[in-house]
Simulated assay, not measured.
Amino acid sequence: MTDSTWGAGAGEDGPAGIVVGVDGSDQSICALFWAAREARRRQCPLHVVTAYTVPIFAASSMDAGYTTVDDAMIRDGAQQVLDEAIERISHYGVEVIPRVETGDAAAVLLELSEDADLMVVGSRGRGGFVGRLLGSVSSALPAHAKCPTVVVPLRTAGRLPDSGIRPPANSPDPDAVHHAVVVGVDGSEQGRAASLVAAEQARSMGLPLRILCALPPFTGSLAWVPAPLDIEALHAELREQLDAGRDWLQSHFPGLEMTVELVDGTPSEILVERTAKVELLVMGTRGRGGFAGMLLGSTSQSVMHHAKGPLMVVPDHDDPRLLDRANFGPMIAE
């Protein structure tokens, strides 16, 4: 499966292209500018989406039943948020398709993800026009979306100076960002699928790909191991598997510069640190028994909540290129 395959089933009114959720918060505007840049680079449509629900309140009188807020008033507010957002990216010259949707924001975006090439959201939206479009959405969407999702933290604002958003005081220095894409792998099928998408992204951005595996420290939690672990032998075995994985990936992307890195440390901490230093970090939704333990899953949630730069989460998907991985050397049997 390649980038162009995501959203392949979209019809003429479908959201093929990039979908970004906005709610008027600085977090969502930061995501909007990242999405606009990506849409311009890919030369694809950008769907700018906001969603709202109509609150229902219990009336004070027992015979009054329930009362609702005027739908038109809330929709007008949503439309204003959307119009202001679109105006801010008008200079990008991309095809923008505005969408005001009724319903739970997470549910709306999840449905749109079925036909999209890429979803983009900010993290922890606050004080949007009605409730929070982001926040819980930035956690739920990557875990359940049908296409890759990029979560753009507010700390990324320094890399998007034209957004007009002032980055938080503890944001990474944008001038120190390395022009590279990093993918976190753990030997699982999900990690391999994510590496294919990461390689597609790196190639399209004209950047090198760094394949990173973090090996958790061995602690008393492994006291049940019957014999002393030979750490050097373990590292050598993992390195052999990583190199074989790189050779497999290189066979599908022969012109792409890529390197492998095996580091000791807690996976979530290592990956969060890298988000501050590279253009994009890519990971799968979860790992299954890979050689570095459960790199993804709970780790992906931790990285999403603490990322200092754009993070792409790739859902589980079938890719025919996974079938020839065993031809290139040792791999974890799942």
Rank of each mutant, 00 (worst) to 15 (best):
C147D: 10
S28L: 08
T219M: 02
R124A: 14
D316K: 09
P55Q: 01
Q301H: 15
L242M: 15
E101K: 10
L322C: 13
Y66I: 13
L215F: 07
R203Q: 01
H47G: 01
S60W: 01
G255N: 15
S113Q: 09
E111M: 12
S163K: 09
S138E: 05
D115G: 02
S113H: 05
L281M: 09
V152D: 11
G329Y: 05
A85M: 08
T5K: 14
G158C: 05
Q201D: 04
T2W: 14
L234S: 08
G103L: 13
P226T: 08
P142V: 08
T266F: 00
A194Q: 06
C44T: 15
V48Y: 12
E87F: 08
L296F: 02
H252K: 02
V260M: 04
V100K: 07
P148C: 03
W248A: 00
T149I: 04
L154G: 12
G135M: 12
V278N: 08
D13N: 10
P98H: 12
L46H: 00
R124M: 14
A214V: 04
R40N: 03
A214P: 09
G206H: 09
P310H: 08
R321Y: 07
Y52E: 00
R126H: 14
F33C: 02
S163V: 13
A58E: 00
G255P: 11
A36R: 02
V120D: 10
M62T: 11
G290T: 06
